[in-house]
Write a protein that binds this DNA or RNA. Structure first.
Lengths: 196, 196
DNA sequence: AATGAAAGGATTAAGCC
DNA sequence: GGCTTAATCCTTTCATT
C-alpha cells in the first residue's frame, strides 16, 4: 500500500472547506485527473479517515433551547455504557470521554431542565454526580491544520510508513507496517474464522 | 418570506447524513423537483442555517498527538480576547464559551506539553488557571434530531413566523418578525451608514 | 414556490500505461 | 497509481404556471 501523502491532505482540506466541490476542481488544484481524485477519496473513506460528507449547521438559528456543557462523573467500569446512553439523548452534539472516566457532552436542550432528561436516559447509579454549565458560544474548527499522518498497523500498532502492506479480507481493508505483521494477522484471522 | 418548514428539516437531515447526495435523490425523498431542492438549499445557506458542506474526519487516524479537553478560567472581561486567541492554536477543534466566563476547548496536541503552547499564544494575565484532561474518545453527532425551527428577528429577537418579513441590505439577508421591526432596522441601518 | 425541458458540467467505468 | 475516453448522470437556468 501507499501511505497517505501531501496530496491526500490537500484533498481533505479542500473537502473540509466545501464537501460539494466538484472533483474536477479538486483535480485541478492538486494536479491530478478527476478519476484519480475520486479513487483517492474512495480510499480515504475506506481507511476510515473520512467518516462522512456532512453539513455544518448553525444550531442557534435552528433550534430553541439552551446550549450546555455537561460533565458526568461516572462510576468506574460504566463509562462505555454511559457514553452510549448519552448518544441517545436528544440534542447532543459532541461527546468527549476523558482518560479519568468522565463523560463530557455538549448539547442544546429545549426544556431547560436537565435532571429529568438524565434520569430518564441514564441509569442513575452509573453517574455519581454531574456539573452543568451554560454556554454562550460554541464553534467548530474542522481545518486539519498541523496534521501529521499516522496510520496504525492493525497487528502491532506501530506507525505504517510507505514500506507498509495492506490486505483486503472479507471486504475490509487492513494495513500493516511490514509483511510479517500482515502474515501474522492473516493467520490469526483465519484461525479465528475456523473456530467460529 | 416563508418560515422554514418540515421539508427543509428533511432536506437538512438528508444532507447531514450525506452532503454529496445528488439533489434529484433528495428531490425524490421529499417529493419536490431537483431545482426546488437546489433553491431551498441555497436559501438555507443564505439564512446561515447551513454554514458549509464539510467532511467529518476521524482525526485519530490522521494525526499523532493527544486529544485533550482544556478548561481556561479567564479573567473577567477578557473572554472574547482569549476565545479568539484559542482559535489560533494549532489543532483546536471545538471551542465552548461558558456563561460564567470560562473558555473550554477540545484539541489534539502533537507535543504533549500544553503549557508552552498556552503561554506562547495567550496573554498569561488573562487566564487565572486552567485544567487539562486527557481524552480517550470523542464523537460528533450532527443529526438535527428534535429540532424546532426558530429564526430570530434581527430587530427585536422574537421568533420569526410565516407572517415575518425579510430584506436584503448591502447583499446580506435579514429577517424580521413584522414590518415595523423591518422598517425600524432599515432606518437605523441607514443612520449608521450616514454616520460612518 | 414550484415545475419541465434542455444545456452545460460532473462523475464513473473501461481499457491502457 | 494514474491517465484518457466515452457514456451516463446531475445541476442549473429559463420560461411557464
Amino acid at each position: 500500500m501507499r501511505e497517505l501523502d501531501e496530496t491526500d491532505l490537500e484533498i481533505l482540506q479542500l473537502l473540509v472547506a466545501d464537501a460539494r466541490r466538484p472533483y474536477n476542481e479538486i483535480a485541478d488544484a492538486v494536479d491530478l485527473s478527476p478519476p484519480t481524485v475520486s479513487d483517492r477519496i474512495d480510499r480515504l473513506k475506506e481507511l476510515g479517515v473520512v467518516r462522512r460528507f456532512t453539513v455544518d449547521l448553525d444550531r442557534s438559528r435552528l433550534s430553541e433551547g439552551v446550549a450546555v456543557l455537561v460533565d458526568l462523573h461516572v462510576e468506574p467500569g460504566r463509562v462505555s455504557e454511559v457514553r452510549s446512553d448519552v448518544e441517545d439523548i436528544d440534542g447532543v452534539e459532541h461527546i468527549f470521554v476523558t482518560a479519568d472516566g468522565n463523560v463530557v457532552f455538549h448539547a442544546r436542550l429545549r426544556n431547560g431542565a436537565i435532571e429529568p432528561l438524565l434520569s430518564g436516559t441514564l441509569d442513575t447509579d452509573a453517574v455519581r454526580e454531574y456539573d452543568v454549565r451554560l454556554l454562550t458560544d460554541s464553534a467548530w474548527h474542522p481545518e486539519p491544520r498541523g496534521v501529521e499522518f499516522a496510520l496504525e498497523c492493525d497487528e502491532c500498532g506501530n506507525t505504517v510508513t510507505s514500506e507498509g502492506e495492506s490486505s483486503r479480507i472479507d471486504g475490509e481493508l487492513y494495513q500493516f507496517c511490514c509483511s510479517s505483521c500482515q502474515a501474522r494477522f492473516e493467520e490469526q484471522y483465519e484461525e479465528l474464522k475456523q473456530a467460529a
